[in-house]
């Protein structure tokens, strides 16, 4: 895999640091960005969480940029859309075509949304890149988040990595037989058949998972394991 969130979450400098501080801290950052709703404050949050990630957790800039690419593309497109298609107030630029254009209000709203969303992403990024999923879940559980939610989240999280591996394997299998090469329609066909196959595989996987869980006396509830890591008998961990 090119980029592995989970690996970074386990290996960064502050992976073992108190998860409550990290999870609550980043949730507070997210909430404050949502409530305060001010461009300067949002930019401040982006800078703070990026600095924490890069300087304190020592996540490499490359990984961080990769992590932000997808949410960036998503937010950017949304805001472009908002910028042009929701005109209200005085025009700064008018295409003269169905009223499409940039207005003072649409500029203000789209910038505001962009920074707000991005502030939330970087704050959440701080959490997901520094805190292993188990720690996040144990924090959520102490706040009475329903167990079923945590269980589904853990199983899905685990399934994502298996999916990604499967996708890589299937894509390579298609590429060796000249998939994705014959132009747009062909690419779409390759992608579609891969995706439907992925769906079948995931159905099968869920059945297998049920069997493997059952054979270890699964009761319908995933038990929580809380080892006492301060014990002398707790083994020294390999790095």
């Amino acid at each position: 895999m090119e980029f592995d969130i989970d690996f970074i979450a386990h290996t960064n400098r502050i992976a073992d640091y108190n998860p409550y501080v990290k999870v609550i801290g980043s949730i507070l950052l997210v909430l404050s960005a949502l409530f305060i709703n001010n461009n300067y404050y949002s930019i401040f949050i982006i800078i703070v969480s990026s600095l924490l990630l890069l300087a304190l957790a020592r996540v490499s800039l490359k990984d961080y940029v990769k992590f932000l690419t997808i949410p960036f593309a998503f937010t950017f497109l949304t805001c472009i859309f908002m910028l042009f298609f929701f005109p209200s107030g005085a025009y700064i630029w008018n295409s003269g075509f169905f009223g499409i254009g940039i207005t003072t209000e649409s500029l203000r709203v789209s910038l505001l949304t962009f920074f707000r969303v991005f502030a939330c992403f970087s704050a959440l990024g701080f959490m997901s890149l520094t805190t292993p999923i188990t720690d996040v879940m144990s924090v959520l559980r102490t706040f009475y988040v329903p167990q079923i939610f945590c269980e589904i989240a853990v199983l899905m999280y685990n399934a994502i990595f298996i999916f990604l591996d499967n996708i890589t394997v299937m894509r390579n299998a298609q590429k060796t037989r000249l998939g994705y090469l014959g132009g747009y329609i062909d690419s779409m066909k390759s992608f579609g058949s891969m995706f439907s196959n992925l769906f079948l595989i995931s159905l099968e996987k869920s059945e297998t998972l049920q069997r493997t869980l059952d054979s270890r006396c699964y009761t319908g509830e995933l038990p929580v394991y809380k080892p006492d890591r301060s014990k002398d008998t707790y083994p020294e961990l390999v790095s």
């Binding site: 989970d6 292993p132 999923i133 188990t134 853990v154 199983l155 999280y157 685990n158 996987k205 297998t208 998972l209 493997t212 869980l213 270890r216 995933l222 038990p223 394991y225 080892p227």
Partner: peptide, 14 residues
């Protein structure tokens, strides 16, 4: 198929 938990120890503890 068998290892479903996020960490080794949780899986063995299951």
């Amino acid at each position: 198929d068998q290892l479903f938990a996020p960490t080794v120890e949780e899986d063995v503890a299951f």
